[in-house]
Design a binder for these strands. Sequence first.
DNA 1: GGTATTCCCCAAAGCGCTTTGATTATTGCG
DNA 2: CGCAATAATCAAAGCGCTTTGGGGAATACC
Lengths: 344, 344
Amino acid sequence: MNLKQLSQMLELSQTTVSRALNGYPEVNEETRRRVMDAARRHGYRPNPSARRLATGKAGMIGYVLPTGSAVDIDPHFVEFLSGLGDYARAHDFDLVLSPADAQDEETTYRRVVANKQVDALYVSSPKPADKRIKLLEQLGLPYIVHGRSEGLHFDYPFMDIDNEGAFHEAGRLLVQLGHSRIALINGQRAETFAVFRERGLRNALAASGLVLATPMIRSFAMTEENGYRAARSLLETSPRPTAIICSSLIMALGVVRAARDLGIEIPKDMSLIAHDDVFPWLKPENFSVPLATTRSSIRLAGARIAERLAARISGLEEGKSGEVWPVDLVVRGSVAGAPTRANS
Amino acid sequence: MNLKQLSQMLELSQTTVSRALNGYPEVNEETRRRVMDAARRHGYRPNPSARRLATGKAGMIGYVLPTGSAVDIDPHFVEFLSGLGDYARAHDFDLVLSPADAQDEETTYRRVVANKQVDALYVSSPKPADKRIKLLEQLGLPYIVHGRSEGLHFDYPFMDIDNEGAFHEAGRLLVQLGHSRIALINGQRAETFAVFRERGLRNALAASGLVLATPMIRSFAMTEENGYRAARSLLETSPRPTAIICSSLIMALGVVRAARDLGIEIPKDMSLIAHDDVFPWLKPENFSVPLATTRSSIRLAGARIAERLAARISGLEEGKSGEVWPVDLVVRGSVAGAPTRANS
DNA sequence: GGTATTCCCCAAAGCGCTTTGATTATTGCG
DNA sequence: CGCAATAATCAAAGCGCTTTGGGGAATACC
């Protein structure tokens, strides 16, 4: 069933039917009702390709997916996607993933924009001075960044959580509990969130006259194995840290394993706080010692970004406004006062 | 730069230019070279919407993504996607995710097909007698199922791993090591893979005159927490199982935690084997006791499915052939002989 | 030499929609 | 009553591509 057939059936022109369906004012309300009704009854659905060709609007939002044998999409993505998908379903648009060579995403961005394949894009895992943001700004397609870049000389629309504040809080708590040797196991430095988290922790320590020394920082891709290695190398120094703050629950698994291997008890010998993006399949309260976390649902972020993208597409949202969500600090059994000298 | 401009520039008709570019035979090789060359130089890219409208081909493959507040996309999906994305990038097509209400995926499938939004679909997590397969068969769009259904009275194209064989092997190994009380912590029964795995294990036991009794089976969504609960409930019975086979690495985390809580040592008191889909962020060899696994890369499966979908789209692959990949059994420290009576 | 092939290329007709520019009723106003 | 304004509809022109159905020129065949 296409427009032509429908309009013949109604003995109206395609123009009128099209307008009736798309809510244009220059059509009699009675007629509109008739049209809407017939469309529903016959299950008429405008052909998206035709509509796209005519309007230039795609009804889809896009994401450039970095791929390559060396590239691992991380499991956070799927949670984010859940949120995005929820909103997208409710508002009837699809998502296009355009795989790109991780070495050369620019080509793909340009292609997607030039072809008008999508109405908006979202950008994730922004790096400091991220080129993709510059590019999109220049290409003029609506977009939102999930996270933040740094050192860009213009504003851009983003949605981020307060990584700095979160790790500041976490650090402050540890300091209050008497810890002074606090280590950080972070995600890769190339990611802006890692920069912010480090900064937050550093400032928290500085506020009490403490220093976050380079040897107390590890930055790696967030795998269990890297968490283990980082923790091990930290805990084998002397004097060892009495507390670790860690950027992901998955890494925290490795940290816990390292502590166990070394006979270090949590929280007696060492406190541990990790950032929790809220996975349904791995919960901090179920760690052998319930894990204190800085918590923020990445899924909700996905839904919010979808919402804002939709608003931008339809012109309801403009400007370059950034949005920063606060992060909860959830204290659980993995934190305790710093061990007394006798223990350490 | 569009076809019209390009053809004017070359002083050729759009027909000829189009044909030259798409490799049709009725064009002079010399002309073709000229055209190809000009197209490259001017960065001409056919507008996909127009092409789609004209040909009905979309240049995209689709996936209907079940969503809803109660639905969790599981982390396996992202690994699968990595593989799919790798292939898609290399062969220049995009992926469309169409979010659907998990309660009513049919509507979305119909829409996607009716609109010709994609050239092919892939279906994951098939259930026994999966309705989606019937529907697609009837709608006539190329598709491939990742996994298998059961009880369908027709053939369909699928790619699956040998779940039955894998758990058969795993079971056989345990039996050979003297285990007789073997428990299964499985994924949800609604998933066909869970049915196959149970069957594999059951047959392995039966081959030695043993029985996989219902009280020795647990079936839940594959989260750490469910792994813990299942293991706990199994290990608190008496006599308790001396070995557990578990359907996922994530669940295995919970199993290990349960064993630890109960003071049960792996592998001395209990052997453990889990299925490993190969995540970059969680590796079985890094469990506190290296975990024996049945291993199969879900990422490779993604790439293979993309390949087959592409072949189907271009008519290179036909028929309903299923493809079953063998699964490696990787023995590591988490398996040992059954404990002697004194220990159990 | 004339006719049949083959080789290249073209004009034009879609694909299904939106939108512009008119056209035909209807109503309002002096 | 006549003319302007308003409302409601339509025909037709794109959007950028593929593909059908020819057609002219060069080559082959008898």
